[in-house]
Amino acid sequence: MAAGGGALIIASAGSGLPSVGLVPRWLTTASHWTGRHGLLVSLREHVIYTVVAVLIAMIIAIPIGLVVGHTGKGSFAVAGFANAIRAVPAFGLMILLYVLVSPKIHFHGSIGWLVPRGAFASLVPVEAMLVVLAVPPILTNTYAGVRDTDPAVTDAARGMGMRPRQVVMRVELPIALPLMLAGIRSAVLQVIATATIAGFLPFLGGLGYQIFINGLPQINDPNVGYPAMLGAALVVAALAGVADLVLLGVERLIVSPGLARPTARTRLLRP
């Protein structure tokens, strides 16, 4: 992939990136957004892949992070595991899982509006790959948030008669929340960026579909090839930006004001 694109860029080096000027027109053409293979469908698929992967990653990473942070047991394993995962190549992992796992999946139906008919066997390796990417930032940040809780605070909590579970849920979790959310944000951004490669697998789409399946094969048509690839990439970037803003809004809503990192404004408000 990278090799092909690189060759083309080199070939056209003299005249700059071809067809860049056509990107706005491609993006504003209504027929590119609607229809069975339009941008809106791709966008919806992309969001679904992302949300499912991040939710699964949270379900895995947050409890482990809380327990490891609270007990202090296994912190070495968490750090090592998270670092090792960072070195895994996403594309290779997805293809490997597709080769190993997908043939063993014999469910070919649809799951509501989430998974179209036949797509499940392709979706599993994609989601598994995205979950592997999303777990480390959430896990390490949850763990770090709990571990960094002032020991005097947890000591007071225990000393007042909170049970271990109450210490975690009523004290450590809310205090770790800002760091946890930072981890979730970074996971979301990474998953949105990486979910573009889902389009390589049969029955799957996402915004990568516009880049690799729609744009790339038609690279020689200046009206479709580069404009589609660049246009879809811009939509990916916009989606990442919007997701980040939404999560910032969530952070505002659920993090206690008492934990606000001292920004210029809050510092002024303090006595």
Binding site: V153, A156, G258
Partner: peptide
Amino acid sequence: IQQAGLFPH
């Protein structure tokens, strides 16, 4: 306790 250990949140 010494550092009060109040819940910051």
